[in-house]
Amino acid sequence: MRRNIPILGYAILCVLGVVLAKADVLDLYMQIILMFIGINVILSTSLNLVNGYMGEFSVGHAGFMAVGAYITSVLNILLFTNSSVFGPPVLSPSSALILFPLTLLAGGVGAALAGLLVAVPSFRTRGDYLAIITLAVNYIVKSSIENMQVIGGARGFMGMSNVINSMKEVVDLPWTLIWVFISAGLTVVILQKFVSSTYGKGIIALRDDEIAAEIMSVNTQRMKVVAFMLSSGLAGIAGGLFAHVLGYINPGTFTIMKSTEVLVMVYLGGMGSLSGSVLSAIGLTIVLEAFRPLQVYKWVIVPLLLILLMLFRPEGIMGHRELTDVFPRLRQLLGLKPKLSE
């Protein structure tokens, strides 16, 4: 029972958020910030699996996000709305409420398959050469979407707000907020369970020494495929949510700049620290919003602050540690098993 305390606490917070949003205490602006925080948490924790736990340097996370965003959006528009591109809805618009998680998942699966583009070359390539491959995949995804005129090409793709509206017609709740909360929570739980499982520890072994891991009977090739697919699949889900928060996507959103933003969150939080990634995703999103009045100077001051932070804490906010390592009492409070001394 006590082990479920963190999950229970998160659920209560989420319900509270939804109730406040419904009661208009949280206005739309605050809701959007909350949703961006959730999406950034998914992005940074999922990238941390590859860049932090596995020690690779993937710089193309936005590419997978784009795959998920487009698959989910196209499916939703095709199935649930009357659009000029795909004609009348295939299913009744009200079924969007039940089937939305499935289309979101389909986006994730699509992105995971795109992750294979990186996973397969990673068998032979490591380090900076693999970084280029992820960079190339990001460009390839963006360029492919730009050349697909059916889904709008470079002009972008829109109409996702109709899907959300048809969900709201059935039950009037802030549905995007709810799905972002659920997805962010699930992502963190899944990743935490994965990296602390015996199977998932193979990834950390791979980072420390690939040859030794191989000798210790870690199937390194399968491990790499699993890690890349899980990471890119989660990025795809974040992309699907992102598309429905904004209601409009275009390939220009998913460039190397977006990937860089996620990279900064991972390294700011600390490689191989999930709680660090969560904290830095929350912190950076809020800081970027708070500095919005500075306009152009925002992108001078934020990087400057980050450089200073790097100079004083060269291993990120949390280093390789988790929040429970910094505050051991927290572990007790949350009802987790005591950590074995190393």
Binding site: N51, T260, V264, W299, P303, L306, G316
Partner: peptide, 15 residues
């Protein structure tokens, strides 16, 4: 770790 230096380089570019 050299990856943190890489991130610092990215930040310098942004500045």
């Amino acid at each position: 770790s050299r990856l943190y230096v890489v991130i610092t380089a990215l930040m310098c570019g942004l500045i």
